[in-house]
Amino acid sequence: MPQIITRQQLLALIDSLLEAGTKVATPVARGEKAFFQYLEKGDAPLIDPAVFPVNSTKEFFFPRHEILYTFERQGTEVLVTDARPFVAPQVVLGARPCDAAALPLMDRVFGWDFQDRFYQSRRENTTVVSLACAAPDAGCFCTSVDLSPETQAGADAELLPIDDDTFEVRVFTEKGRILFGGKTSESDKTGRTGAAPDRKFDAAQIRERLQTAFETPAFFSEAAVRCLGCGACTYVCPTCHCFDMVDEGSVDKGRKVKNWDSCQFALFTHHASGHNPRHDQGERQRQRVLHKFSIYPEKFGVLLCTGCGNCVRGCVDGLGIRPVLEEIAK
């Protein structure tokens, strides 16, 4: 029998989690936009399948800023203290299926040659509940990257809207069972998943073309002219995971921190010598496309893109990765 939960029960569940000190992240409305964020007092969770939050859920696993260790000079000695990885349980609720699907992709990166305990600890302690989408918007392209709105990848449970105030709950893992155990009731109704985006490109063909596309062909030059050179597409992307490690503070007392970085910045590849192997925005666009559609797949066998469309929606100049991919596929 399908299990269901009402909106009221869901909100009560969120409240009880918050009361117990569990961090809960959901989309929250801010002006005309919505953002995934940790709920604070007075925030209303926005559980609406028609909403496309600006950011992805990656920052609850791979925060934009994280302290790795602190240092302090004490006389002639320097005291170094490792930061402890995050260990408290947290819940990410209302993730888009394409947000959740990005997590197994990041798992590979952070658990490959180097085991990143900061990331892994957050992953182990987080329950991810996705929300089935209502309908694709003009930015969506999950069906072009071997996914669909039906994907369960990365989610511990999924909410599927039955009507405005009722969701079917599908549980996939033990963490999902613990979260929803005793909180749902049986019903004969089942929830819906929205239609799949119909506009499609052939990712396999793109990958093949990229093999010989290193010497910046026309489609990267066009993207170079249109691209602003900001980092918005990479920061709203659920799979972009590049970071920089920098010292902050003073010589006497400070910390080593890990901050998001973006391949779209000129500084990203700038060598100390002054040489920049990616000196033109087209080469930086190529870097991003190759990483997702050629380099990562070569290493891990899957694409590093879930077709969520965040980059298309987040780009002030309406670029994002899809127009570039479509240009390559032409």
Binding site: R30, Q37, R64, L228, C230, G231, Y235, W260, A266, V316
Partner: peptide, 24 residues
Amino acid sequence: TRCFKCYACRQVCPLCYCTQCIVD
């Protein structure tokens, strides 16, 4: 709190023309 430093503000600004921005 929501700023994640993508620097889109700087990139679109006609008057942010420093060849090397102070943050860089």
